[in-house]
Design a binder for these strands. Structure first.
Lengths: 122, 122
DNA sequence: CGTTGACTTCAACAAAGGTTCAACCCATAG
DNA sequence: CTATGGGTTGAACCTTTGTTGAAGTCAACG
C-alpha cells in the first residue's frame, strides 16, 4: 500500500496502480500500452514497474487520441518522435500536440465535408 | 455487369458493387453494415441487394464518422433517428449532421484540453 | 508469523470490425 | 450453350484493444 514510499523508491516513480488511479485508465490497459511500446517504465529491485511523471501525460493523451479515432499504432508513431533524447520538454510536447491537433482537424474536416455534401445533394 | 440496367431494375437502385465503387468502401464492409442495421436494401426477384441513393450518403458518413472515433453502434444510434418516417429529407440530414459535428467537436475539445494541460504542466 | 493488498507473468477469453473462401445462382456476350 | 462477371450465403479467420484469472512475490500490519 505504502509501496511508493519505499526506501529504494521515494524518489523513483509511480506504480501502475497510481497511474491507473490518476488517469482513470485500467492498470491492465496501462500494462498493455507498455507492451505495445507506447509507455516505458523502470523496475524496482523486486521487479515492479515505476513510471515517470510524464507517463500520466502520455496515458491521458493516448486516451483522448483514441476518442478521436487514432489507433494505438498511430499514437505510438506520434509518441516515438518524443523519445530519442529522453525527458520530453515543453516544446517536444507542443510539437506533438500540434501534430495531433492537425490530424484530428483533418478528420473532422473530412466528416464536415461529407456532411455538407450530404446536405446539399439530398 | 449491366446488372443494374435490368428491366426489373432500371428504376430500382444500386448494387452492392456500385455502392462499393462509388464510396471506396469494400462490398464486404457494406454487407456487414447492413447486417449491423446501419443500412437497408431491397432485393430483386433474384435476391440481389438494391440500395437507394441515400445509401451512398450513409456509407460515406459511416466512414467519416469512424475516422473521428465513433463506433458503429454510436453511428447506428445516430442514423436511427433518420429512419422512422423513411426517405430522409434535407433537414433530417442537417439535424443528423449537427449531432455528429457536436460529438466530434467534444472529442477534439477534450483532446485539445489534454494537450493544453500537458503543455502547461510539463 | 501469518494475512493482506498491491504487484508480477502468462494464458485464455472477448467484442468490434471486417476479410476471405467455398459453393452456388443467374443474365448477358460470344 | 457455355463461359464470365457480377451477386448470394455461411463459416472461418484475422487484427485490435483490452479484461480476467491463476499462481506466485513481496513488504507491512498486527
Amino acid at each position: 500500500m505504502t509501496w511508493q514510499t519505499d526506501y529504494d523508491m521515494h524518489e523513483a516513480g509511480l506504480t501502475v496502480g497510481e497511474v491507473a488511479g490518476r488517469t482513470g485508465v485500467a492498470a491492465s490497459a496501462i500494462r498493455f500500452y507498455e507492451r505495445q511500446g507506447l509507455l516505458t517504465s523502470d523496475r524496482t529491485s523486486t521487479n515492479q514497474r515505476r513510471y515517470h511523471a510524464d507517463a500520466l501525460c502520455r496515458v491521458k493523451m493516448i486516451h483522448a487520441c483514441q476518442r478521436v479515432g487514432l489507433t494505438l499504432a498511430e499514437i505510438r508513431d506520434a509518441l516515438s518522435h518524443l523519445e530519442p533524447g529522453k525527458a520530453p520538454g515543453p516544446e517536444d510536447w507542443e510539437h506533438l500536440a500540434a501534430r495531433l491537433r492537425t490530424e484530428a482537424s483533418e478528420r473532422v474536416d473530412l466528416l464536415n465535408q461529407v456532411l455538407r455534401d450530404l446536405a446539399s445533394s439530398s
